[in-house]
Every structure is written in structure tokens, then in C-alpha cells.
Simulated assay, not measured.
Amino acid sequence: MNSRLNTVADVMTRAVVAVGRSATFTEVLETLQQWKVRAVPVLAGDGRVVGVVSETDLLAARDHDPDRADAYTAGRLMSEPAITVHPDSPLAEAGRAMARGRVKRLPVVDDEGFLIGVVSRGDLLKVHLRADTDLVDQIVAELRAVLGPALAASVGVRAEDGRITLTCGRQDAAVLTQLAAAVRAVPGVVDVTVATTAPV
């Protein structure tokens, strides 16, 4: 089963603020405060992501050279190369990239390196806060795709706080185990119970 929320494109924020390499220390700081973010991508003149400048970078510059910090530009302050992710990357891949880079947000870029969005740790967690009705709708649709409409219609799907109960009359234990594992992989599913109406 494939989740409808399994790639970065499914959860990323498309409205993104960024700065150019020539943005000054003060301009970067004002951008961070205005948009209430802790880091922004830095773009080359053609719009490609070349780095990221964060509050940590600003503080390091101020602490290193307090008298000249205001003269620094984003191009000098930024961390480079930027850790980026593609929109079709799996959510787990984005999570691992954040953990490795010890960052909370990643610029999302297309195949040419152009900025198209940003994904945060909070975005990655959204898939676990899905409504039960949404989970049931997705599971039913995917059961139809896997089992076919007739057989899927014989499987009852109920959700309560992310806990899924599948009710069916199938007696094939291997099929039941496979279905449970597939449903368990859907983001937002907490647990899966299979109840049979006939002996397994």
C-alpha cells in the first residue's frame, strides 16, 4: 500500500521566504523576525539554493566580530552547501537528512536546484495527526486497489484514534497478516487489529 502522504511534496510548505547572497546582516535578521522562522535559504541570482543562513550563523558572526557583524552579507554568513531535499523524496529520507544535518527545516528544490518549498520537522509529523475518517477513506481505497472491489467490500474498516480494526471472513492467515502489515504502514495508523468472522 502506498500512503497518500508519503513524499515531501505531500506535506511541504510552498510559500517560502528566502534571501539573496547580498542581503545584509540586518536584512536577514529582519526577515527571520518578520516571518517568525529561524533560518532562510540563500539564493543565487538565478534562484538556485546555494546555502542557508540561520540565527546561529548570525550569532556566530556577532560573537566573532561584534563591530563588523552588520557589514556581513548572507553570502558570507550562510552555511554551504545547503542540505536540500527533493519533493518526491520519501518523508523518512527528509527526516534522516534533518537528523544528520542537525537542522529543523530543509529547502525543497527541483531537479535544477530551484527553490520550490520548505519542509520542517513539524510538517513530517503532520501525517500522524490525521482524522479517523481520512484514514478509513484511504485504507478502503487502497484495499480496493490491492484486493479488487469485490473482495475489498467484504473487509470492514473501523478507526478510533488511529487504531484500525479490519473485520473480514477470510480464513487465509497469510493474507490477513499481509493486509495488517500494509495498513500499519499508512502514516497516522497507530495500531491494527484483524477480527475474523470465521476461524483462521
Rank of each mutant, 00 (worst) to 15 (best):
S3Y: 12
R4W: 14
R4T: 08
N6Y: 05
V8H: 04
S22R: 11
T26M: 04
V28L: 02
L29T: 11
L32M: 05
Q33Y: 03
Q34I: 06
V37H: 10
V37Y: 11
R38Y: 11
P41E: 02
L43S: 04
L43F: 11
L43T: 06
G47H: 08
G47R: 08
R48P: 04
V49S: 06
V49T: 04
G51D: 09
T56P: 01
L59F: 06
D63M: 14
H64Q: 13
A69Y: 04
L77M: 09
S89L: 12
P90Q: 12
E93A: 14
R96W: 15
R100S: 14
R105H: 12
L106F: 09
L106C: 04
P107A: 12
P107M: 11
V109L: 13
D111N: 10
D111M: 09
L115H: 13
I116P: 10
V118A: 10
G122F: 06
K126Y: 06
V127P: 02
R130N: 07
A131D: 12
A131V: 02
T133I: 05
D134L: 10
L135V: 11
V136R: 12
D137L: 06
Q138F: 02
I139C: 04
V140M: 01
L143F: 00
R144F: 01
L147F: 12
L147M: 13
P149T: 02
A153I: 05
G156N: 10
A159D: 02
D161N: 15
T167F: 03
C168L: 13
G169S: 08
G169N: 02
Q171T: 15
D172S: 06
A173G: 01
A173T: 05
V175M: 13
V175L: 15
V175E: 15
A182L: 13
A185I: 01
A185H: 12
V189P: 00
V192S: 00
V192E: 00
T193R: 12
T193I: 07
A195N: 11
T197F: 01
A198K: 13
P199I: 14
P199H: 10
V200W: 08
